[in-house]
Amino acid sequence: MTDPREGAAQPILKLRGVSKQFGAVQALKDIELDVHAGEVVALVGDNGAGKSTLVKVLAGVHQPTDGAIEFMGQPVTLDSPGKALELGIATVFQDLALCENLDVVANLFLGHELGPWALDEVQMEVRAWTLLQELAARIPSVREPVASLSGGQRQTVAIARSLLLDPKVIMLDEPTAALGVAQTAEVLNLIERVRDRGHGVILISHNMEDVRAVADRIVVLRLGQNNGVFTAETSNAELVAAITGATENAVSRRRARKLEEVEQ
């Protein structure tokens, strides 16, 4: 495969010195991040490292306290979720952000319905089934309220929704956390398809296997700060060290203990 970044010198998304303060908590500090066209960037880090906060800043949900964001070379202020969607930044949130009282079709098209003055339900339903089949979704009916779906089905709905507007950058915050084996494989396939179409992908996951399978670069966050950029070839020990901030950590201690047990 050729380098996906070749020819796309300018990143789609460029963050410089982005910080976010929640009262006394400094959730993000001086974050630098580039996402190029046709590239999958994995964002990894421990619980509370600030991954979701960064995604929410880019989705227009939170306003950064400091820093600059450039989209397609232009400086932008993402002051509302609508603005981010308009630019072509779509997000699958960790908490999914679905309306439980609405059915699957209504959730998929929320805010972007076909036919504002006379909803085109038939067209929307067809589009919904097509999107869901692309994700190998096992959803019995798109006319049931989302409240009646399982956790994984909801996650599939949220992913399908992010694809609806054909975004330039798609951010997935732990998209496979609740998914079955087949659905996880489909989501990884989908991420590759989106990349091959020349879009940028930001993937957050705690599953290193999934991350290695699709990521072109692995960006590590630790305590709200950048802690190195790696590739899929990086060894597991090195990654874990970057994530936890020490070569001597819970993961390495556990491995050492297991090794000892085997040797005995």
């Binding site: 989705a59 949900v61 509302s80 979720p81 609508g82 969607l85 308009e86 997000t91 949130f93 952000a97 679905l98 309306c99 439980e100 009282n101 609405l102 209504a106 929320l110 805010g111 972007h112 319905e113 036919g115 504002p116 003055w117 006379a118 909803l119």
Partner: peptide, 25 residues
């Protein structure tokens, strides 16, 4: 039941934050 406005009304009543994140004003 048949307009974008009505959909938004149900969405805001059901989950205001989700409605906001969908780009609804």
């Amino acid at each position: 039941t048949r307009t974008k406005w009505g959909r938004a009304m149900f969405a805001v009543g059901g989950n205001r934050e989700a409605a906001r994140r969908s780009g609804i004003n």
